[in-house]
C-alpha cells in the first residue's frame, strides 16, 4: 500500500493542478496579509474560503483522479497486490497531496508574516486541521461516488451535486426545519443536525475558537454548554474523525467486491 501511496503522491505532486492549487493558496495568503497585516482577521477570511473551496476541490480532484488513473488501476489489479491497498493507497495519495498543498500554501505566507510570535497560532492551526479533515472527508466521499459509478459523467455530476448539497442546500433545509418547528425546543436538535454535515461542523469548530462564540451561547443553556466549554471542540473533533473513517472504510469494503 505504501508503494502505491508513494507512486500516486509523486505522480500528483508532479502534476500541473497541484501546483495551481498550491499557487492559489500562496497567492491568497500573501494578498490577504498584504492587504491587512492583522493575522486574526486574515484567519477569519480564510475560514470562509476554506470551508467552501476545500470540499469542492477535494471532491472534483478525487473523482477526476479516480477516472483518469482507471487504466493504471486495472493494470495494477492484474498484479498480485491486495485490492484494498491499491484503492486506499490511491485515496491517501490524493488526499495527502491536496492537504500538503493547503498546508504549505497557507503556512508559508503566515510564517513569513510572523505567525509564531502572534497569539493566533492556535486558531491558525485549527484552520489547517479542519482544512485537512475536510480534504480527507471529501476525497474519500468522491472516491466512493466514483467507485459506485462506472459512467464518468454521471460520477462527476453526482460529485458536484453532493458538494452543492453539503455546502448550500443542507443549510437551507436545516434553516427551514428550524423555522417550521420554532415552537419546540430546538437546541439539541440543531447541534445534532450540525454533526451530520462536515462543512457545518468545521464552520462551528472554527467559530468556537473566535470571539463570536459568546454570541452563539446567547440562546440557551444547551448552546451555552456546547459553545462555552471544551465539550463542543471535543465533540466536533470526534464527529469529524467518524466522518473520515466511515467513507474510507466503505472504499475498503466496496473495492473488495467490485467487478472490473
Amino acid at each position: 500500500m505504501l508503494k502505491i501511496l508513494k507512486y500516486s503522491f509523486y505522480d500528483l505532486i508532479r502534476s500541473r493542478w497541484s501546483y495551481v492549487y498550491l499557487l492559489f493558496y500562496l497567492a491568497l495568503g500573501f494578498v490577504l496579509l498584504f492587504l491587512n497585516n492583522d493575522l486574526s482577521k486574515a484567519v477569519i477570511t480564510l475560514m470562509n474560503v476554506i470551508i467552501i473551496l476545500v470540499p469542492l476541490i477535494g471532491t472534483i480532484f478525487g473523482v477526476m483522479y479516480y477516472y483518469n488513473s482507471k487504466e493504471f488501476t486495472e493494470l495494477l489489479l492484474a498484479q498480485p497486490i491486495k485490492r484494498s491497498s491499491i484503492f486506499l493507497g490511491q485515496y491517501l495519495g490524493v488526499a495527502l497531496s491536496l492537504s500538503m498543498s493547503l498546508i504549505i500554501g497557507l503556512g508559508l505566507p503566515f510564517t513569513m508574516y510572523g505567525l509564531f510570535q502572534s497569539n493566533t497560532i492556535w486558531e491558525f492551526l485549527l484552520l489547517l486541521i479542519t482544512g485537512t479533515f475536510l480534504t480527507l472527508i471529501f476525497t474519500a466521499l468522491a472516491f466512493n461516488i466514483a467507485l459506485y459509478n462506472e459512467n464518468k459523467i454521471k460520477g462527476f455530476s453526482y460529485a458536484i451535486l453532493f458538494w452543492l448539497f453539503m455546502a448550500v442546500i443542507y443549510d437551507g433545509l436545516f434553516l427551514m426545519s428550524l423555522i417550521m418547528f420554532e415552537s419546540y425546543p430546538l437546541d439539541k436538535f440543531s447541534i445534532g443536525v450540525t454533526l451530520f454535515n462536515p462543512i457545518d461542523l468545521s464552520r462551528i469548530l472554527i467559530l468556537l475558537k473566535l470571539d463570536i462564540s459568546a454570541l452563539l451561547g446567547y440562546t440557551g443553556a444547551v448552546f451555552q454548554k456546547f459553545f462555552g466549554t471544551n465539550l463542543g471542540v471535543i465533540l466536533s473533533c470526534i464527529a469529524l474523525s467518524i466522518w473520515v473513517f466511515l467513507p474510507t472504510f466503505n472504499i475498503y469494503r466496496k473495492s473488495k467486491k467490485k467487478d472490473f
Partner: peptide, 17 residues
C-alpha cells in the same frame, strides 16, 4: 430570522445565509 428563531444562530456565516 435569528430574532424569530434564536437557534438558527448556529448557521451564522454559512454560505446559504
Amino acid at each position: 430570522i435569528v430574532n424569530r428563531t434564536p437557534e438558527t444562530i448556529i448557521l451564522m456565516r454559512s454560505l446559504f445565509i
